[in-house]
């Protein structure tokens, strides 16, 4: 174990551990907010450029403050709770969607000695926590007591469960190669990026991750042309904003894991580690955005067929080949 230095160092700068936790949480939430603001701006700019438009230009330089203005608008909106909803579920769902993701950010090693928590099984914890997202979506859909929302939630659950399997199967070869479940150790072990030896695993991981985050062409739970807005149809104002925030945080997390597992994490020449880390993460996110603005949406049953008949067998074969090669 190499990483805990960072953690202990960080906590030792404060006398009181509670203050340390509060500082860490504050930093995390700040990062989430700024990250979401900048990602939404990036998304709008990427889509605009792909569609021969300018995107936001008015507020701030290059329209950078446009999202901030939108957030102010969202915060200012009335939070409408429709009469027919199941109140406890309806109210808890946005928090449930957001909280696990915020916790997960603390597990990501951003640089060689820059991580809040690191222990033996961060990867397992991360994958388990990202599974909680499904519960939040289902709570939102069920609690909304709306047919469109329920349909969206049912789709989301089926989709996320299906795609978690190829995702795990794509991660396993890396775990076998490094014999570690700690993100920090896996990243440290890469003298070359693992994508070079595990390209198939990377592709499967990335496709599954796109589906996990409900991004197009897998945005079936919130397919706006069929289901209005899917599971968050009944949410307004900042409650809707929180779902949005969760989506963008989730993107960062899955892309950060891809960076750590396949792209060598913070490693790179010349620039400091964390800069490389963020370059890689945002590069992957940009690819996801290009997906979104390029492809039409798959149909629900086609999506499931794709996961179970193509991705899962491929991932299994890849895993078997890895095991055989490692044993030779």
């Amino acid at each position: 174990m190499t990483a805990p230095h960072a953690t202990t160092q960080f906590f030792h700068t404060f006398d009181n551990p509670w203050i340390a936790i509060a500082a860490a949480t504050g930093a995390m939430l700040g990062f989430i907010t700024i990250n979401a603001l900048w990602l939404i701006w990036l998304e709008r700019k990427v889509s605009a450029r792909m569609q021969r438009r300018y995107g936001p230009t008015e507020v701030g330089p290059f329209g950078l403050l446009q999202t901030l203005a939108d957030v102010v608008k969202l915060v200012g909106k009335e939070l409408i709770t429709p009469d027919h909803v199941h109140r406890p579920l309806y109210l808890i769902a946005p928090i449930l969607a957001f909280a696990p993701l915020a916790a997960l950010l603390s597990l990501l090693p951003i640089d060689a000695d820059w991580v809040f928590h690191d222990f033996d099984i961060t990867l397992v914890l991360l994958l388990a926590f990202s599974g909680l997202n499904v519960i939040a979506i289902f709570a939102a859909g069920w609690g909304s007591n709306n047919k469109y929302a329920l349909l969206g939630a049912v789709r989301a659950v089926a989709q996320n469960i299906s795609y978690e399997i190829p995702l795990l199967l794509a991660v396993l070869p890396i775990v076998l190669m490094t014999r570690s479940l700690s993100l920090h150790e896996i990243a440290s072990a890469q003298s070359y990026p693992f994508i070079l030896v595990q390209p198939l695993a990377f592709i499967i991981y990335f496709i599954s991750a796109t589906a996990e985050t409900n991004r197009a062409p897998f945005d079936i739970p919130e397919a706006e042309s069929e289901l209005i807005a899917g599971f968050h149809t009944e949410y307004s104002g900042m409650r809707f904003g929180v779902f949005f925030l969760a989506e963008f945080t989730n993107m960062v997390i899955v892309c950060a894991v891809a960076t750590l597992l396949f792209l060598g994490g913070w490693k790179g020449p010349l620039l400091p580690g964390f800069v490389w880390f963020f370059i890689k993460v945002y590069g992957l996110i940009a690819v996801m955005m290009v997906f979104r603005w390029t492809f039409p949406r798959l149909r629900f049953d086609q999506l499931m067929t794709f996961a179970w008949t193509i991705l899962v067998p491929l991932a299994l074969v890849n895993l078997l080949v890895t095991i055989v090669v490692l044993k030779l």
Binding site: S47, P296, R297
Partner: peptide, 16 residues
């Protein structure tokens, strides 16, 4: 039609 199928970009090209 492409918008109905979830592809947003062709919409703007066709409208252009």
């Amino acid at each position: 039609y492409l918008l109905d199928l979830g592809g947003f970009t062709p919409f703007l090209y066709a409208f252009d």
